[in-house]
């Protein structure tokens, strides 16, 4: 259904519109001054990350690497009444040792309706961004395909402190472009009704972040 004539005509119109651009000019010849900061952060990035995620009214729990991790995961899931948990492939088995409810694995792939009927999902993350309080998922191990962290109403995301980057530029540079990537900054929100911020329209209405301090 691609239309080669439409393409040719659009390109021809663009080229004629750009007659003032010298023919020998290459795109890279147009200067872009990149002397903006790599990072705006000078303070402790883990503290900043925690504070900034909390600013979005997400809950953050800090825990040292080790025994406390499965205990905290079990506590959060129990407190939130999760009895039917979506567990993506590659999520560390030992971290679910304290959880006694049912598990939904994605093999064979769960339907959207099954995800909708679950109580929540637990995932790892690809990185965190301190300045903006952002969690980045890239469908890597322990994160699952995108639908897994989208449809359930609760998302418990486990981020390692060593994954937290200071600011947006280093985070973007660390991404793998072809992976499906989602930046998550707090729970789903809208300000469409008289500009009152309301949490939870379509994404998970509850975002719990467990920060595992590993460095």
């Amino acid at each position: 259904m691609t239309n080669p004539e439409a393409k040719d005509r659009i390109l021809a119109r663009i080229r004629s519109a750009l007659r003032d651009v010298p023919g020998e000019e290459r795109p890279e010849d147009v200067a872009v001054t990149r002397d903006y900061r790599d990072s705006h952060v000078s303070a402790d990035i883990v503290d900043l990350f925690v504070g900034r995620v909390e600013d979005y009214r997400a809950t953050v729990t800090r825990v040292p690497e080790g025994q406390q991790v499965p205990a905290e995961i079990a506590r959060i899931l129990a407190e939130r009444g999760v009895a039917n948990l979506v567990v993506p492939p590659g999520f560390p088995e030992e971290w679910l040792a304290g959880y006694e409810g049912a598990r939904l694995t994605d093999d064979p792939p769960l339907t959207a309706a099954e995800l909708d009927a679950s109580d929540g999902v637990v995932t790892l993350a690809a990185q965190g961004i301190a300045l903006t309080g952002t969690i980045v998922l890239d469908a890597g191990p322990g994160q699952g395909r995108r639908a897994l962290s989208l449809v359930p109403d609760l998302h418990l995301c486990v981020v390692r402190s060593s994954q937290v980057l200071p600011d947006v530029p280093p985070a973007v540079r660390a991404l793998v472009p072809h992976r499906p990537t989602t930046f998550i900054s707090g729970p789903s929100a809208t300000s469409d009704i008289e500009l009152d911020r309301v949490e939870g329209v379509h994404g998970p209405r509850t975002l719990e972040v467990l920060l595992v301090v590993d460095s």
């Binding site: 469908a139 499906p180 789903s188 300000s191």
Partner: peptide, 21 residues
Amino acid sequence: STAERMNPYTSLWTGVTPGDG
């Protein structure tokens, strides 16, 4: 835009990813 440090969600995708989306 919304005067936030970051908007709640940004999705990036590249073509088609088998088994995802």
